[in-house]
Design a protein around this nucleic acid. Structure first.
Lengths: 249, 249
DNA sequence: ATCTATTTGTACGTATGTATT
DNA sequence: AAATACATACGTACAAATAGA
């Protein structure tokens, strides 16, 4: 294989800059050379430099600001962007609800266990307060839909609280996000799910007790039962996940 | 909310094109309008169109070809690129070996179970053949390192075989990739791990038996024990994951 | 509050590379 | 082998945004 550079210039430049970030141990907030300097140092035109910057920006590695002192700055990719990018990957892969729940069933109990005894009192009451919105049975479809979103949000809050293991946190938030996305746009929640909110609420309440008591094994077991119960309901409606990109908010 | 477009033009254009892909149900291989047409339809200049194309390309949504009949084509993002993009996210997140194994411990048994009775004879023998390379004890460090890579590759092959649940497959391949990456560049594998290859090989062999027999529960249990055993060894060396981007191959 | 300097953002024109026919 | 259609790259000019005097 000859050394002929098969990639196009903007990508060569982007790769070079990535190497700089690694080798020079650049941290979020650090400034990269400006367009003019890059043009000079790398011997490319302005347009090429800009295309490179867009690439790095699209990948979430830098952000750019105009004006004096502006330029391209190293940036820690937001979790929202990472989720969005992963949804780009799954766009052409056929994911089913079943797939999502296979993951949740394996991971959520793990998260619950790792949280036992590690949630402060103020977060604890925030979690308990959030249960209120779906203790009572829903009047209409609209309310039920909202309850389901609130219930999913409970899981997002749990993931948020577990600062340790960012990867676990990310995966859980991603799966939850996909489910929430489905709930918003589709009538995913129609038949025979009316009491899912009720039972879900009970599971959540028991789970909080176990977490507060610091009983990791009990938390794990409760969450597992919770997932199995939800999975059974969801598997009934063997839906294909909607083809869309998740937005970045 | 006012329609004031806070984002810059290339991103507006990229978003527009993404909407086209969703709404028109474009599939991989479908061609997007050429630069000239986009310039006309969207009322932007050539440079802006090109920056937009780079953004979509960086996100793995399109590829571009030169020459007659060339242009930008819709493309299903490769798993390799998705892994690379996710590694960009984790770059600033401080992941530990412990974190990786927490995920593996939860997911690998699930994968093993889902594979039981679903692997064809030819794949079965490929898997068995791969065991050969680490049945015998390693002579030197170099050989041991290679054995560890082969052993990880076994898990990659398993993930590959499980076509169902692309997301599960992706996550497992990602975690394995991170470990392989560490093994290549660092001396992760030094102390007290000499028999890890041996015991790992035994686990793998037993696992294949269970899979061939179609015994999902047994496969799950064996893989779980395998992960627990490896985790115990790895937790000894509480290493921080190396700061680097995973390459796209 | 206004101006000014700095730096990115957008547009346009032109030339070159590359693959298809 | 040549013509064609398309992306790729360069250079310049000007617009917009922002920090600081």
């Amino acid at each position: 294989m000859a050394g002929s550079s098969t990639k196009r210039r903007p990508y060569q430049v982007a790769e070079t800059i990535k190497r700089w970030i690694v080798e020079k141990h650049l941290k979020p907030g650090d400034r990269l050379p400006g367009e003019a300097e890059l043009m000079g140092q790398l011997g490319v035109s302005k347009g090429t430099v800009r295309e490179s910057t867009r690439v790095l920006e699209a990948q979430g590695l830098v952000e750019t600001r105009t004006g004096p002192g502006g330029g391209a700055f190293v940036r820690a990719m937001s979790e929202a962007r990472a989720i969005s990018l992963l949804s780009h990957y799954l766009f052409f892969q056929d994911i089913s609800i079943r797939d999502i729940y296979q993951i949740r069933l394996a991971l959520e109990p793990e998260l619950a266990a790792s949280l036992a005894g590690r949630v402060g009192p103020e977060d604890m009451s925030r979690l308990r307060a959030s249960l209120e919105s779906y203790t009572d049975i829903a009047r209409d479809d609209e309310e039920e839909r909202q309850q389901h979103l609130d219930s999913l949000n409970f899981h997002l809050m749990l993931a948020e609280l577990s600062g340790n293991n960012p990867l676990l946190c990310f995966i859980i938030r991603f799966t939850t996000q996909v489910l929430a996305d489905l709930t918003i746009y589709r009538r995913l929640y129609e038949p025979a799910t009316h009491d899912l909110g009720q039972t879900g609420c009970r599971f959540h309440a028991e789970l909080l007790d176990a977490i507060e008591a610091g009983d990791a094994e009990r938390a794990r077991r409760i969450m597992r039962e919770h997932m199995l119960s939800a999975q059974a309901v969801m598997n009934a409606q063997e839906a294909q996940v909607r083809r869309d990109f998740l937005s970045e908010t």
